[in-house]
């Protein structure tokens, strides 16, 4: 069983981020790390391959400046190899372009049974790449998986919804997006870290993938600060204030 995981390398969320004023996108020229929301997909993939009794986990990623730091973390966890698309012409690419590039990258890895992605990245948050990737590849797509199982060549997913979850099945190969918490990501072991540096990372450009004339329609036209939180309402207790609290909670539909 061969699984590909789409992983994003992002600026460290613990450090202050900065926008590029010309494109309104996040500056990504420093060291990048593995998006934590993708560590769940990597762990899920490793568990599925182990359960299947064979196969391997491969990674695809798109990042500037041949950045591999985040990929190394996923390789240290146990992934076998990676394809990294690094191309200045892709700076600021929109979600659909990203999906097309990642789709082309997955094809470099040959036959695959399952492609896993996070539901959304922690820095861009479009939350649309996994479904677009499935469409580009012509594969079925299941989103918001909170559990993933494979039995008799069929993908069985509990799909998180607002009300609960749907039980969904679909044939393989397929694309599934997993929520944070689907599994508990392992810590890379010391041996994993030592082994990661000798695992192959195939670094390619858009042209190498046959992705021609890279351009996209989507642009971020402006970025505004979130409105400052308004001061709350202060209720002086006159002995009846609990009614106002109940009314407030009732308006929120939480009681």
């Amino acid at each position: 069983m061969n699984v590909i995981v789409c992983v994003k390398q992002i600026p460290d969320p613990a450090l202050p981020g900065e926008l590029d004023p010309s494109t309104n996108t996040l500056k990504r020229d420093g060291k990048l790390i593995l998006d934590e929301s993708d560590s769940y997909g990597v762990e899920m993939a490793l568990q599925l391959v182990t359960a299947a009794g064979g196969g391997e986990v491969s990674l695809v990623s798109m990042a500037p400046n041949d950045e591999v730091s985040g990929l190394r973390t996923a390789l240290a966890m146990g992934a076998a190899k990676a394809v990294l698309v690094s191309d200045p012409s892709l700076a600021g690419a929109d979600a659909l372009t990203t999906a097309k590039v990642l789709a082309a990258a997955t094809k470099r890895l040959g036959d695959v049974d399952l492609i896993i992605a996070g539901t959304e990245s922690s820095d861009g948050y479009t939350g649309t790449v996994p479904e677009q990737l499935a469409e580009v590849l012509g594969l079925p797509s299941i989103t918001f998986a909170k559990t993933v199982e494979i039995a008799d060549g069929t993908l069985k997913v509990d799909r998180q919804t607002e009300a609960g979850y749907d039980e969904v099945t679909c044939p393989l190969p397929a694309v599934v997006s997993v929520t944070a918490g689907v599994v508990e990501p392992r810590y890379p072991s010391f041996k994993g870290i030592m082994a990661a540096k000798s695992k192959p990372v195939d670094t390619v450009t858009a042209a190498d993938l046959g992705v021609e004339s890279v351009s996209w329609a989507q642009q971020i036209t402006s970025v505004e600060d979130a409105p400052a939180r308004e001061a709350g309402e202060v209720i002086e207790d006159d002995g009846e204030s609990f009614n106002k609290i109940v009314e407030f909670l009732d308006n929120l539909k939480v009681i």
Partner: peptide, 15 residues
């Protein structure tokens, strides 16, 4: 090295 720093990040996270 990068390996040392990855180990540091891992142990820091674990701790």
């Amino acid at each position: 090295s990068d390996d040392h720093e990855m180990l540091r990040a891992t142990v820091r996270d674990f701790a």
